[in-house]
Computed example of a mutant assay.
Amino acid sequence: MQQPRVVFVLFDDFQALDFVGPHEVFRGTGHYDCRVVATRARPVRTDSGLLIAAEHRLDEVDPATVDTLVVVGGPGVDAAARDPVLVEWIRSTASHARRVTSVCTGAFLLAAAGVLNGRRVTTHWAFAEQLSQEYPAVIVDSEPIFVRDGQVWSSAGVTSGIDMALALVEEDRGRQVALTIARYLVMFLRRPGGQTQFSTALWRAQPATDPIRAVVSAIHADPGARHSIDDLAARAGLSPRHLQRRFTAELGTAPAAYVEQVRVEAAQRDLLDGDSVEQIARRCGFGTAESLRRAFHRRLGVAPSDYRDRFRSVGTPY
């Protein structure tokens, strides 16, 4: 039986991890025929100076034989998007392939080929606004780790290409195969497509003093624990009023709001694992399913059940 062909498109100054991560996922299954192409068959230099052998020229790969197209990103993507031969080959291949994918700023190359018009896509958060401005026909969502819109998949920055590739493998070969590959790659966290590119620990300002650091660490270590203002104040060695003032000044948000955001993120992860909303609400510190639903509506604008249905349909890495 012929293996599905996965073709990786490289160009000078591409990001090595955009290619190597997904390539290792697909090759690790033993199920795919992986090919590496560039405008000319030669070693292609990454943005960090590594040389990767592109074993095939574009004209050596028939677009009609491609099952999954993977377009990587990197600093060289702007020059690549001005290469008419490369752009036309991507356009032609995308019209034949079962799936078309991009990693990081590879979305710019797909956009240049007209593949993303009218589609919802993601890219690295630092380039989302630029993608939206340069290609107004593309619907850019800078939040998710990866997005599926029909047969077009796109992923955020760098390592998120691994998450997307695992989801593609799960779609083709099932959850257990994807799990096996994830374990082999020593993937520590399962990241569903709907997970934001930023966790609370990243998008908030960082604590400036040891008492507030201790409080923040405790919240992230166990979101479901008791984190009342009195409990947090005792951990910080401050009065509740003093903690409230210090915490808000250092992080830009009140302690209660911070705790709720961390708990919502924990619930987002758990919702992909099959437990009931009631179980997740208790485990993540909300107490009741109704409290969890209210927090979800406040933070995300959707119900927990709708969130689960939406992102389970995309697939999870394992």
Rank of each mutant, 00 (worst) to 15 (best):
A257W: 12
A178I: 09
E88Y: 06
G150P: 04
A167L: 07
R42E: 15
L131V: 12
P304Y: 00
D83Q: 06
D83V: 09
F247C: 11
V177H: 09
P192M: 02
A53P: 07
A80D: 08
D67F: 07
T248F: 01
T65V: 10
Q261G: 12
P211H: 11
P84M: 09
S160Y: 00
W89Q: 11
E24F: 09
D33N: 01
A137I: 03
R190A: 15
H220Q: 11
Y307T: 01
F296D: 00
F8M: 07
R312N: 12
V37A: 13
F108I: 13
P144S: 03
L166G: 03
A208C: 10
V85F: 05
P192T: 01
G274R: 08
A54R: 05
V277T: 14
G224S: 06
V25G: 07
R312Y: 05
A156Q: 02
F247W: 07
W153I: 05
D309S: 12
W203E: 08
R40D: 14
H56D: 11
T39W: 02
G194E: 01
P240N: 04
G287C: 11
L202P: 12
D270Y: 08
V66A: 03
S313T: 06
A249I: 07
A126E: 14
R57E: 15
Q197L: 09
S305K: 06
L271A: 01
R148M: 00
S199D: 14
Y135S: 05
T159N: 12
I181E: 11
V6Y: 02
L168K: 11
L300T: 09
D33W: 00
M187S: 14
R308P: 03
Q261H: 13
I52A: 00
M1Y: 06
R283E: 10
L58P: 04
R191I: 12
G285P: 06
G193Y: 01
D230S: 14
P255Y: 10
S154T: 14
A303Y: 05
T248L: 02
D163W: 00
A256G: 11
E134D: 11
H297Q: 07
S95W: 06
L185Q: 05
T93Y: 03
A178V: 13
R191L: 14
P22F: 03
A205Q: 15
G287Y: 10
I139T: 10
V152S: 13
G194T: 00
D306R: 04
